[in-house]
């Protein structure tokens, strides 16, 4: 059941346009995301150092007890890694149980961790945690030149435009044909969790999503296959594509 945000009509599942008022409906789970998320759950799991509940590697909070896992990222992240043997039998290693206990009991675990538990720390600083994050990689397919542009997965906001003094573009379109209709600060792609949004940040010639103008300030949730055209006339157009 999809309830229309505009007229509250209850549409059947899979409706993309409201049957009553024909406005485009928000899509709950696009295919790409729906396929990825179960994998993410089954892949890299570890246990919460406080309550031993299962949590996903890279999670910020424990879903069971609410512990801030970012304050103890090292233990949870490195468990399945190379130092795992040391930590898997916590009873045999003296420093660890107090740490776990302190984390559960004390509000300021960070300091204690650093002082008491020196051996694991240097290993944890290896920065491997970033690569473990399960993410869909997305790219833009430029229709006119049939080329792919990767959307940098590390950035939460990807600025699209041409070189300027205010906001340097992350995706620079100045080299593309007809790029004169693209504004220097044209739009943003925002990456929020597993969803991507497009926003026009006040371009001169506007942005068209699937041939429909996107009003400045409105966000459009991108789905695989969406056509983003910068400016009028469909001259600089991209297809948003995802690969899981």
């Amino acid at each position: 059941m999809v309830t229309c945000p505009s007229c509250s009509h209850q549409n059947p599942d899979h409706a993309t346009h409201c049957e009553a008022c024909y406005i485009p409906l928000p899509v709950a789970a696009p295919a790409a995301i729906a396929e990825v998320s179960p994998e993410a759950k089954t892949q890299e799991m570890t246990s919460c150092p406080n309550c031993k509940a299962e949590v996903i590697v890279g999670a910020s909070f424990c879903g069971n007890c609410g512990l801030d896992l970012r304050s103890v990222p090292h233990i949870s992240l490195e468990l399945p890694q190379s130092i795992a043997p040391q930590l898997i039998a916590p009873d045999s290693i003296p420093p660890l149980p107090p740490v776990a206990a302190q984390i559960g009991a004390l509000p300021e675990p960070e300091i204690n961790l650093a002082e008491n538990n020196k051996p694991p720390e240097p290993i944890t600083a290896s920065g491997k945690n970033k690569t473990q994050l399960q993410q869909i990689s997305a790219h833009l397919f430029h229709v006119q030149t049939e080329s792919k542009i990767e959307i940098p997965p590390s950035l939460l906001i990807v600025h699209i435009g041409k070189p300027n003094n205010l906001i340097p573009p992350d995706i620079d379109l100045s080299g593309f044909p007809d790029s004169d209709i693209v504004s220097r600060v044209h739009g943003d792609i925002r990456n929020e969790g597993d969803a991507y949004y497009f926003e026009d940040t006040g371009s001169s010639n506007g942005t068209y999503i699937n041939n429909v103008p996107l009003p400045p300030g409105n966000r459009h949730r991108l789905r695989a296959g969406d056509r983003i055209a910068m400016g009028k006339g469909d001259k600089v157009s991209f297809i948003f594509q995802t690969t899981s």
Binding site: S6, C21, Y22
Partner: peptide, 25 residues
């Protein structure tokens, strides 16, 4: 390789219906 190709003429007809339905609502 799915690429949406929305028919602009049909889109206009859908808009016409949407306008009518929205006014009715």
């Amino acid at each position: 390789d799915f690429k949406p190709a929305i028919d602009p003429e049909v889109q206009m007809h859908i808009f016409a219906l949407a306008k009518y339905r929205q006014t009715q609502l």
